[in-house]
Simulated assay, not measured.
Amino acid sequence: MNQQNILFTNNTAQAIDTAINNIRPNGIFVLTDKNTAVDVWPQVKAESTMMSEATLITINPGDTNKDLKSATLIWENLINGGATRHSAMICLGGGMITDIGGFTASTFKRGIKFINMPTTLLSAVDAAVGGKTGINFNGLKNEIGVFSPASHVIISTRFFNTLQKRELLSGYAEMLKHGLIDSAATFHKLIDSDPLEIDAGHMLELLKASVEIKRRIVNDDPYEQGIRRALNLGHTAGHALESLAMKKGKPVPHGYAVAWGCIIELILSHTHCGFPTNTLRNAAQYIFSHYGTPDINCSDYQDLLEFMHHDKKNISSECINFTMLSNVGRINIDRTATESEIKTALDIFRDLAGA
């Protein structure tokens, strides 16, 4: 897998023009959702010389629309707009847009180049970086997708002022995960800060440090054969919580589910790998105070287990695969837990949350 060219800058117009000049496509298509098309696209188009002639493709917002229907709509727009194998797509938006945009670009005519321009903290720190693309299918998160890195990722904090509180917190959860797998110093720097009070300059510094953690791991293991699985901390349980919320018709932000998933998996880490109790309690206190608690009870456990069994990381049908930690920064990939152990972890999770 080719390494991504990641640019950290608030001069987004110059960055996008430079990126397009490097690619030299014969046609430019911009994918965004209908909200970003109103809030961000006019500003980007006005400032960028290269974007003024781009063809805009819009889809409905929200992760529930990261599906085959939206993918088909994108492919149809590319065909109707005369796209060729030498065209390029700019994915302007949050993680949903960079996920589905990367997937549709990578499969259109066996692959056209694409540029990710995340407008949310979550997308900047997670979905836009690392080369994972995909769509949801049959109620399962990211069930269909490919590894395909964007040629460029342009990361900026200038669009974050359009974000609601929950969107900032959602992105910060992925940064907390990166802190947990990196070092105690990184993790404590994050939990000593309030993401809603950080100024744009400081946030860009924290964001760059967080992305560099992910980039280092991805470069070592681009196709998730080993250490890259560390980035899945919180995601096996988190995706199950997210899928359950979608099933109930009460979707939750991805980062909230990951934050809760981290606590569930740190509980399993305590049981299996001796993760320290005090650190677990500190993490849980920070997460619950900022992210609240999920709407689950004992009757939801079987649904959660079924969603976890569908996780792509599983090898055995009997046990469920997790990334665990023996301490902050001490990673144990490919650890498994039984259904009984997971139910116990869910009980402890709800006790810590005060359920």
Score class of each variant (00 low, 15 high):
residue 10 N to T: 12
residue 10 N to V: 06
residue 11 N to D: 15
residue 12 T to P: 01
residue 13 A to F: 01
residue 14 Q to H: 11
residue 14 Q to A: 15
residue 14 Q to D: 14
residue 14 Q to E: 14
residue 15 A to K: 01
residue 16 I to M: 00
residue 17 D to F: 01
residue 18 T to L: 11
residue 18 T to M: 10
residue 19 A to K: 03
residue 20 I to P: 02
residue 20 I to K: 01
residue 21 N to E: 13
residue 24 R to A: 15
residue 24 R to I: 04
residue 26 N to T: 07
residue 26 N to E: 12
residue 28 I to V: 14
residue 29 F to R: 11
residue 30 V to Y: 03
residue 31 L to Q: 09
residue 31 L to M: 12
residue 34 K to L: 12
residue 34 K to V: 09
residue 35 N to K: 10
residue 36 T to D: 00
residue 37 A to Y: 00
residue 38 V to P: 00
residue 38 V to G: 00
residue 39 D to Q: 13
residue 41 W to M: 13
residue 41 W to N: 06
residue 42 P to D: 08
residue 43 Q to V: 14
residue 46 A to V: 00
residue 47 E to M: 05
residue 47 E to Q: 12
residue 48 S to R: 03
residue 48 S to L: 05
residue 48 S to V: 06
residue 49 T to W: 00
residue 50 M to L: 14
residue 51 M to I: 12
residue 51 M to R: 03
residue 51 M to V: 12
residue 52 S to C: 10
residue 53 E to V: 15
residue 55 T to V: 13
residue 59 I to E: 05
residue 59 I to C: 11
residue 62 G to P: 12
residue 62 G to S: 11
residue 62 G to H: 10
residue 63 D to V: 05
residue 63 D to I: 09
residue 64 T to W: 06
residue 64 T to G: 15
residue 65 N to K: 08
residue 67 D to W: 08
residue 67 D to G: 10
residue 68 L to I: 15
residue 69 K to A: 13
residue 70 S to Y: 08
residue 71 A to Y: 09
residue 72 T to K: 13
residue 73 L to C: 10
residue 73 L to P: 00
residue 76 E to C: 03
residue 77 N to H: 13
residue 77 N to W: 02
residue 78 L to V: 07
residue 78 L to A: 06
residue 78 L to K: 04
residue 81 G to P: 02
residue 81 G to K: 05
residue 81 G to T: 03
residue 82 G to Y: 04
residue 82 G to A: 11
residue 82 G to I: 09
residue 82 G to W: 08
residue 83 A to N: 11
residue 87 S to L: 02
residue 88 A to W: 01
residue 88 A to F: 01
residue 89 M to W: 00
residue 90 I to E: 00
residue 93 G to E: 01
residue 93 G to L: 03
residue 95 G to K: 02
residue 96 M to P: 00
residue 101 G to E: 08
residue 101 G to T: 07
residue 101 G to M: 11
residue 104 T to N: 09
residue 106 S to P: 10
residue 106 S to R: 12
residue 107 T to R: 06
residue 107 T to Q: 08
residue 108 F to R: 09
residue 109 K to W: 10
residue 109 K to T: 10
residue 109 K to P: 00
residue 109 K to V: 13
residue 110 R to E: 09
residue 113 K to F: 01
residue 116 N to W: 08
residue 116 N to S: 14
residue 117 M to V: 14
residue 117 M to H: 09
residue 117 M to I: 13
residue 118 P to R: 09
residue 119 T to S: 06
residue 122 L to C: 03
residue 122 L to E: 03
residue 123 S to Y: 03
residue 123 S to I: 04
residue 123 S to F: 05
residue 124 A to C: 07
residue 127 A to S: 15
residue 130 G to M: 09
residue 131 G to I: 10
residue 131 G to H: 04
residue 131 G to D: 07
residue 132 K to V: 11
residue 133 T to A: 06
residue 133 T to G: 07
residue 133 T to Y: 08
residue 134 G to R: 08
residue 135 I to A: 06
residue 137 F to C: 11
residue 137 F to P: 00
residue 138 N to E: 14
residue 138 N to P: 00
residue 139 G to S: 08
residue 139 G to P: 07
residue 140 L to F: 15
residue 144 I to S: 01
residue 145 G to M: 07
residue 146 V to E: 07
residue 146 V to G: 01
residue 147 F to N: 10
residue 147 F to M: 14
residue 148 S to G: 12
residue 148 S to P: 07
residue 150 A to W: 07
residue 150 A to K: 10
residue 152 H to D: 15
residue 154 I to G: 04
residue 154 I to M: 06
residue 154 I to W: 06
